[in-house]
Design a binder for these strands. Structure first.
Length: 531
RNA sequence: GCGGGUGUAGCUCAAUGGUAGAGCCCCAGCCUUCCAAGCUGGUGGUGAGGGUUCGAUUCCCUCUACCCGCUCCA
């Protein structure tokens, strides 16, 4: 049997993103959005093959969580229901969630060295800054306290070592306009010295230059509901699907006879006005998420957190992703959001991050933060009465949140396999059950009754799988095209078929061929692709 | 947002201040009995706008998209 090829592993760093982007467009996976108008930064369109791939991944996630959920740590299948909430919600949702106001990060740029900083990080970065440390040694003042300043030594430092260390300082750039005289009398703090040598109170941690004003940057897209476009009817496009789950927690509880612990899953578009969309569809402004909120008793939250972190990584492995390309990374304590007690990422070895890994899915222990906030803002009771425990509580939440569109990129990157020996020079090694085209049917030549047989087989398979039939051009060209599209199996009808009712099946990964009965093709597909 | 790089056909690459070419791909027809074969024909392009010029793909300006870095995140 030659279904499973085991090619030597290709280092993701050797996979060219340019080549992947070009293939995606050439074969109808992903196009730049509104390309005929010059495109638009941060948006991408999914072509005929791209949408099949995306739908297959989406359906697999839904199947494996909602329809055929995993077995939990207590040995029983977990209970998860789905919802599909509106992209636009009452704006109060985003006030409660903290996205209005809190989700934007004011940024400042240094006018001298052009580096970009988060405004709320500047003070801390100044403390750690190499040039500030050097300065404090020269003048003998620590980060706290005060002392008299030897302006002569300071002057000497400014004109020598600081030229390399902090070229942005005003005393370095323009010693005339920086008056060290102000430091000659009495004792001074480090902050006062910084003000004089930099000309500003909070200089650039990197070079000592002056920073621009903090620019507010709201990550949420805004629109208006209704005829009048004023602030009174301002609405937001959701930046995550999760909040639609929290706002429906009570509805699901009241209508679905669910009991703790249980989950609510949702797949859908989210929108973030990213400062810098990058790396093809990896970070785009419109993207699709697959999120599940797992509600449980506070005492059980840690157990479930551990369960879901392991389960989610295993799920990606179950799609055929090379284990060597997946990594679990637990967040450090100082990395955690204030409401979160634990967070882990499933990371992938992306071609553009290699040799580093980059985030694919995050599993967050959110405690009771979200439901508490919504209870507070909405004035609605979001507690759960647990009959078994005879206890009333706000459930704790474990949130596995994956990027669907990011997952599509993973599948493409993972499948991308250069092969100089092939006509196509590259093929996509998709898991057969996820491939956008699962099989192709070819008549070897377009005559002698073969096209008719091919047509019949094609129609027969089409009801259960995504199949294409192609009668044009040489057989080699058709195989090559299917290699690039990632079609795992091609069935070819030749003159023998007419006599003995067999067809050739050609395996994408090995290019090997074998003959099987035409009446066993359905079984073959069921066995190799699934139903 | 700032800095650097890039932008000629679907792809790879030419060319020129004076009618933008080739190979491959793609499409049609013929041919073809298993891996982009052959023959004939065909579609299709200077990212967008403005300026200089008799004439701009070429020179200048603006915008835009993509890639890299700072930063952020599903």
């Amino acid at each position: 049997m030659t279904t499973e090829a085991s090619p030597t592993r290709i280092d993701p760093a050797d996979k060219s993103m340019d080549a992947i982007v070009a293939l995606c467009k050439r074969r109808g996976f992903i196009y730049p959005a509104s390309e005929i108008y010059g495109g638009i930064n941060g948006f991408w369109d999914y072509g005929p093959l791209g949408v099949e791939l995306k739908n297959n991944l989406r359906d697999r996630w839904w199947r494996d969580l909602v329809k055929r959920p995993p077995v939990g740590p207590d040995g029983r299948e977990v209970d998860i229901v789905g919802i599909d909430s509106a992209i636009i919600q009452n704006p109060s949702v985003w006030v409660a969630s903290g996205h209005v106001g809190g989700f934007s990060d004011p940024m400042q740029t240094c006018r001298q060295c052009k580096k970009l900083f988060r405004a709320d990080h500047i003070a801390e970065m100044l403390c750690d800054s190499a040039w500030v440390t050097a300065l404090s040694e020269v003048i003998g003042i620590g980060h706290t306290g005060e002392a008299e300043v030897d302006t002569g030594a300071l002057q000497k430092w400014a004109q020598r070592k600081a030229k390399k260390l902090a070229p942005g300082l005003i005393v370095v750039r323009d010693k005339e306009s920086a008056s060290l005289a102000a430091l000659e009398q009495g004792a001074h703090t480090l902050a006062q010295v910084l003000q004089v040598v930099a000309g500003v109170a909070a200089p650039c941690p990197n070079c000592g230059g002056d920073l621009t004003e903090a620019r507010e940057f709201n990550l949420m897209f805004e629109s208006h509901a209704g005829a009048v476009q004023d602030d009174a009817n301002k609405v937001y496009l959701r930046p995550e699907t999760a909040q639609g789950i929290f706002t429906n927690f009570k509805n699901v509880l009241d209508t679905m006879r669910v009991r703790m612990p249980f989950g609510i899953a949702q797949i859908g578009k989210s929108f973030r006005n990213e400062v810098t969309p990058r790396n093809f569809i990896f970070r785009s402004r419109e993207f699709e998420q697959m999120e599940m909120e797992w509600f449980c008793h506070p005492d059980d939250a840690r157990k479930w957190y551990d369960f879901w972190v392991a389960d989610r990584q295993e799920w990606w492995e179950s799609l055929g992703v090379d284990k060597a390309n997946l990594l679990r990374r637990d967040h450090d304590d100082d990395e955690l959001a204030h409401y979160s007690t634990a967070c882990a990422d499933v990371e992938y070895l992306w071609p553009f991050t290699a040799p580093d890994f980059g985030e694919l899915e995050g599993i967050s222990h959110r405690g009771c933060f979200d439901l508490s906030r919504h209870q507070e803002h909405s004035k609605q009771k979001l507690e759960y009465f647990d009959q078994e425990r005879n206890e009333r509580y706000i459930p704790h939440v474990i949130e596995p949140a994956a990027g669907l569109t990011r997952g599509v990129l993973l599948l493409i990157c993972e499948a991308f396999t250069p092969d100089e020996t092939r006509a196509s020079k590259v093929y996509l090694r998709f898991n057969p059950s996820l491939a956008p085209i699962q099989a192709a049917v070819f008549p070897l030549v377009n005559k002698d009754g073969m096209p008719e047989v091919a047509e019949k087989l094609y129609r027969d398979l089409r009801s259960d799988w995504t199949v294409q039939c192609d009668v044009k051009q040489s057989i080699g060209k058709r195989y090559a095209r299917m290699d690039e599209a990632g079609t795992p199996f091609c069935f070819t009808i030749d003159s023998d078929t007419l006599n003995d009712q067999t067809v050739t099946v050609r395996y994408r990964d090995t290019q090997h061929q074998e003959r099987i009965g035409i009446d066993t093709v359905r079984d073959f597909m069921a066995g190799h692709v699934g139903l």
